[in-house]
Design a protein around this nucleic acid. Structure first.
Lengths: 110, 110
DNA sequence: TTGAATCATCGTAATATTGCAATGAACAAA
DNA sequence: TTTGTTCATTGCAATATTACGATGATTCAA
């Protein structure tokens, strides 16, 4: 009932799902793209760049931060967010493995 | 609310999010893994393999089907599902491009 | 100290998702 | 035709997600 039954799946399946879920909203996709694009660690501009309320952006940032995909450091009155490359790489290899699993299997049936 | 504001994002961002969302539940990850593993197009066994009710599995299959990631064909009393390789490949390249965007940018700040 | 700026959190509303029992539809075998 | 099998759909309940205004907390500048 609204709760995913994580206990019947493998750790890897749950982890893939968690990362994928984080990418499952265009605002978070956009945030991550911005953080990659802006070389310097600009932050609060995300609210201006993306057309969502400050509270909403902050909420999405929190999710990405909880997952470890980004990290933030306070700089005066503003907070500097950027990609956590280590965890990004981890996610990338996890998802890539999943996405590449068709290479071995070329037969099709329907 | 609870509705994602898709209109303020690019088509690509929305598409990435849609595909990622489909992978954002361990049951669907598991279903896709099974469909890749079983070479022959076995189907209803998904209910036995995964520990969820038949109605629930059917619902997840419907989602994956609507997105075009899998397809099904009726075979007597059972339905044969398998990966839609064309769309899978499309998703893979879309997500891979997104996941690989860090290659160009090596600087870090926080 | 006061005020402005920036960001997080809280509270709330609207909607989406997850899960299942019950039921329906289609088909094959008896 | 009847019965059993397989899968889809419906109808619900529980929970999660998305979004935003209002309000705090923190920091810098005056």
């Amino acid at each position: 009932m609204g709760v995913a039954k994580t206990e019947i799946f493998t750790d890897q399946q749950n982890e893939i799902a968690l990362f994928a879920k984080a990418l499952g909203h265009p605002a978070r996709v956009s945030i991550l793209e911005h953080l990659f694009r802006i070389d310097s660690c600009v932050c609060g501009d995300l609210v201006n760049e993306i057309g969502l309320a400050q509270a909403t952006i902050s909420q999405h940032l929190k999710e990405l931060k909880n997952l470890g995909l980004i990290q933030g450091s306070v700089e005066g009155t503003s907070v500097c967010y950027c990609i956590n490359k280590e965890n990004w790489t981890k996610m990338k290899s996890l998802l890539s493995t999943f996405l590449d699993q068709d290479i071995q299997n070329t037969s099709s049936c329907c």
